[in-house]
């Protein structure tokens, strides 16, 4: 899905490149958003009970970060690397299968 950033990319950040060296307009030419694990600051996480899941896929479509994935049996799973704990999936789940649990650090 994503390729490794070349050495040059780590040089930008290590050497703190300036305006004449950085790519135009803040573009990062090595990654898509898939490479940015943005779920690490959430206060809540969606914990899905697969036994209760009725495969309606409401959570899949409502998740603003596409953090819900459907497994081989069409049961919802949450990708914690992207879940920001907004709770929309839990609110919309008709089977009450998603519990929002506070993250303890």
């Amino acid at each position: 899905m994503t390729k490794e950033a070349p050495d040059e990319f780590s040089r930008w950040t290590k050497e703190k490149w300036g305006s004449s060296q950085l790519p135009m307009g803040g573009t990062v030419p090595y990654h898509t958003a898939y490479a940015y694990k943005t779920g690490d600051w959430s206060a809540f996480k969606a914990i899905i009970d697969k036994e209760k899941c009725i495969s309606c896929m409401n959570c899949y479509y409502y998740c603003p970060d596409s953090a819900i994935i459907m497994d081989d049996n069409l049961k919802a799973e949450c990708d914690m690397a992207f879940c920001k704990g907004c709770g929309i999936c839990s609110k919309h789940c008709p089977a009450d299968a998603i519990e929002m649990r506070r993250v303890t650090r």
Binding site: T27, P29, Y30, H31
Partner: peptide
Amino acid sequence: RDRFCPDENKTFGS
């Protein structure tokens, strides 16, 4: 320049 294209790994508006 760098353009948004499904085949390429790039981030715009980061």
